[in-house]
Design a protein around this nucleic acid. Structure first.
Length: 812
DNA sequence: AAAAAATGCGCC
DNA sequence: AAAGGGCGCATTTTTT
């Protein structure tokens, strides 16, 4: 056979390597792609590790048919595309049909893509039935050598697979669901809980969708492993359906009771449930333990959802129901029962996971502190943030759109003079124009080998043709309109935007933000200024000054950098002088350019960028043009000036190699199993992450601790500096900045107190026992709008108060 | 027609 | 010796 569909065959001799073993086996195992061994033997060959696992779980390997999803040997470092997998799929399908197995073990993401076309991480170890075949997906057993932490996933999957073959069904636990539809029944339930002495309970809701303003709550449940109480609400067969007043009364009664008598209220993703309950019934449970957050602090690399964790930790079969039922589309009595049962399992496993995770968190004192002084107070603060949303100025909106559309039209007309009929948003058409019509040189290609038209490429072609600049301009404007004008209009509700924050959104500990992402709003005042504070309030941004540079200073302990920060010096000025050996100019215009250069140097070299990349980086991000010699010289001088930085980089690499993980100063863990990979690229990436993650993560931790204390959610706080929560709202965070709406008559007091609190959150010193060796400074910017005509406050000599007073005088 | 991948770019 | 990192969203293009 001689298949040339995907091009991987050039690496493989022979190519198209078929499976081996019993041609009519009940059991089939599909690995991802052929390796050296398969090539040598000319047929798919099980690895010793796989054989060991099969043996361990009592599966007779001679009774197995074994094959690969991709039938050509694929050397390390060669990236195959999804298309390659699918091209090979026809042959795999043929094999499956011939062998006609009852059970298939799927090994690896590519095999998963080819067989079931689902993501691997969220289905690991579960049983999936399709066309009368039972599939179990797993990581490759070989993964345990590179990442021992994944061994339990592999074990779980093999155990499940062996059970399946032996006809042992892993059953879902017995539930004990009690439906509550009257106040009397709820009262009895609460009494029963009290009598039994249940200190912790999980709770959960089901809803018709994810939008709390449009969707309805169908069920509210609470309980543990012994009993699951469910109040049916807006769903067919619920006696309370349509009776909104009765629903409200019952839900409020139940939640009040839970808040009063339960020590620990647990939820899977409590912020979601609480925002729904608050919106619909004006009440919410006091969330004490959140599974998704516990999962994240215990392992930031794996999926954090309740289901994935239950499968992994409790050996639970997946209890998911189809999306229609999950959204409350109940048609029959059976559907209704199934729906209640579904929620019952949620409650059961949320409680089970609480027991497991709580114990595990307790085992690590730092994680324990982080969980109860950062994550949990943090999620409650974000609950408030999301409830409030961000105020939008609809009238400025229309003006901005007009302005941008006019600018876009102008650029487009200019571009059309060079070539008509081009869609300037299309990378393919732009590439054709640049590289075929204009014959510009192809400098970079995309991942798929097409000529790149990305920004960094275009910046290098800027001088070659006038159209290049216009294309960049066109794309910039287009993005502003589509992401931030249209995108926001689609998401607006009652004159506000309601971004969602994920405290578990990144591997480093930063938050992520969606719908819309408040953390990627352009700095251009046309867009940023669409957001602001409503009448009578002022929009306040409080951001840690040079957070990453200061934290790198702390982590590296570099004496020169420390001195600069301790003496209140300006790092960019000093870097400029130390690295270029020129003194900074008095002329503000020249000084501005010099500082720009210094910023490129600081941010570029901080994490060890090479001179070549630095040269591009300085040009692309700061518009600073350098010669090769300058770039090299600056790099050498930079590390001479701040000589501890390379030592710190070295130390991080050493630590991660020894432990497989690094921690930031307050104990947050970044696990980097790839450091043990046989792929050099992955190892290098893990090394870089071991340097960067603690900086990023600590910056985020500081912001959250500061935001939590200002917002009034901290467990410990400066009594004298406590703020009046009725006079301001926290509306968001942007990595090292926090955004507020502050009532005008409270503005001065707010800034004065918030600055002190944020620069030294109480939890940092009292709980984490951490004292920063250099000051962490918080800058304040105030205005009617965000970033449009806003005033940067100058705290030198108390000038800021006069600035605020002058600003306030103009407001009336 | 709908879903997924590829491309590009906004922020810190 | 050489090496920044972390996200989410919209549009076009390809695949099913």
């Amino acid at each position: 056979m001689d298949c040339k569909l995907c091009g991987l065959c050039i690496h493989s001799e022979p190519s198209c390597i078929w499976g081996s073993g019993n041609n009519h086996a009940d059991i089939m195992i599909i690995s991802s792609y052929a390796g050296d061994e398969d090539e040598e033997k000319g047929e798919a060959t099980m690895s010793p590790t796989l054989l060991k696992y099969l043996d361990q779980y009592g599966i007779d390997s001679s009774q197995v048919y074994y094959t690969n999803a991709i039938k050509c040997r694929t050397p390390r470092g060669i990236k195959f595309k999804v298309g390659d997998i699918k091209k090979c799929k026809a042959y795999l399908d043929q094999e499956i049909e011939q062998v006609s197995p009852k059970f298939i073990l799927i090994i690896g993401a590519q095999a998963m893509k080819a067989t079931l076309d689902q993501p691997l991480t969220s289905t690991l170890g579960t049983t999936i039935e399709k066309n009368h075949i039972k599939y179990v997906p797993t990581y490759s057993p070989g993964i345990i050598f590179r990442d021992p932490g994944k061994a339990e996933f592999v074990d779980q999957a093999f155990r499940n697979f062996a059970n399946l073959i032996n006809g042992i069904e892993v059953k879902l636990p017995e539930l004990n669901i009690k439906v509550l539809t009257t106040k009397g029944q709820i009262k009895k339930a609460l009494n029963h809980i009290k009598k039994k002495g249940y200190k912790a309970l999980s709770y959960d809701i089901e809803s018709t969708g994810l939008n709390r303003f449009e969707d309805k709550i169908t069920l509210l449940g609470f309980g543990n492993k012994q009993v699951q109480y469910i109040i049916p609400l807006e769903v067919r067969f619920s006696p309370l359906r349509g009776k909104l007043l009765a629903q409200k009364e019952l839900v409020r009664y139940a939640v009040k009771g839970l808040n009063k008598d339960t020590e620990t209220l647990i939820a899977g993703n409590g912020k979601f449930d609480n925002l729904f309950l608050k919106e619909h019934f004006k009440i919410k449970p006091q969330l004490d333990f959140d599974i998704i957050l516990a999962s994240h602090i215990l392992d930031e690399n794996t999926p954090n959802g309740v289901k994935e964790n239950a499968v992994k930790e409790c050996n639970a079969p997946n209890w998911d129901v189809d999306l229609k039922l999950k959204q409350g589309n109940v048609e029959t009595r059976e559907d209704y029962e199934k729906y209640l049962t579904y929620l019952g399992y949620d409650i059961y496993f949320e409680y089970s996971l609480y027991e497991i995770f709580e114990e595990r968190i307790k085992g690590d004192p730092s994680l324990h502190k982080l969980y109860y002084h950062l994550y949990m107070p943090g999620i409650r603060a974000y609950e408030d943030i999301e409830e409030r949303g961000v105020y939008v100025y609809p009238r400025k909106f229309k003006r901005a759109r007009k302005k941008l559309e006019k600018a876009l039209g102008k650029v487009e007309r200019k571009l059309n003079r060079y070539k008509k009929g081009v869609n300037w948003s299309s990378p393919a058409q732009v590439a054709e124009f640049l590289y075929e019509d204009l014959k510009l040189p192809i400098i970079e290609t995309t991942d798929t080998g097409n000529p790149s038209t990305g920004e960094s490429t275009l910046l290098q072609l800027r001088d070659k043709h006038k159209a290049v600049e216009l294309i960049l301009e066109y794309r910039g404007i287009k993005i502003q309109i589509s992401h931030f004008i249209d995108g926001w209009i689609n998401r607006m509700h009652k004159g506000r935007l309601f971004p969602h924050f994920k405290l578990h959104g990144t591997v480093t500990g930063r938050t992520s933000c969606t719908d819309p992402n408040l953390q990627q709003v352009p700095r251009d005042p046309t867009i940023r200024g669409l957001l602001g504070a409503p009448e009578g309030y002022t929009f306040v941004e409080a951001d840690f000054s040079q957070a990453e540079l200061r934290i790198a200073t702390i982590l590296s302990g570099d004496t020169t950098m420390k001195r600069i920060y301790q003496t209140g010096g300006d790092i960019h000025t000093e870097t400029y002088e130390l690295v270029t050996h020129e003194t900074i100019s008095d002329d503000p215009k020249i000084r501005k350019e010099q500082r720009k250069k210094a910023k490129a140097i600081n941010f570029g070299f901080l994490y060890g960028m090479g001179w070549k990349k630095f040269k591009d980086y300085a040009r692309d991000s700061y518009g600073v043009k350098l010669t090769d010699r300058e770039a090299k010289e600056y790099r050498i001088n930079f590390f001479k000036a701040y000589h501890s930085l390379p030592d710190w980089h070295k130390k991080q690499r050493k630590v991660v190699k020894a432990l497989g993980q690094v921690r930031n100063p307050i104990g947050r863990i970044r696990r980097l199993p790839d450091i043990y990979s046989s792929d050099e690229g992955k190892v290098a990436e893990a090394e870089r992450q071991s340097i960067n993650s603690p900086v990023q993560g600590f910056g985020s931790d500081l912001t959250i601790l500061a935001m939590v204390e200002v917002s009034g959610h901290a467990n410990v706080y400066h009594r004298k500096l406590q703020l009046d929560r009725s006079k301001f709202y926290t509306v968001g965070t942007v990595h090292d900045a926090t955004l507020f709406e502050v009532r005008n008559d409270y503005l001065i007091e707010f800034i004065s107190k918030a600055k002190k609190v944020m620069e030294a959150p109480r939890a940092l010193s009292k709980v984490f026992k951490y004292e920063a060796p250099i000051p962490m400074i918080v800058d304040f910017t105030i205005g009617k709008f965000w970033g449009d005509g806003a005033i940067e406050l100058d705290f030198e000599g108390g000038k800021w108060k006069r600035q605020v007073e002058e600003y306030l005088a103009l407001q009336n």
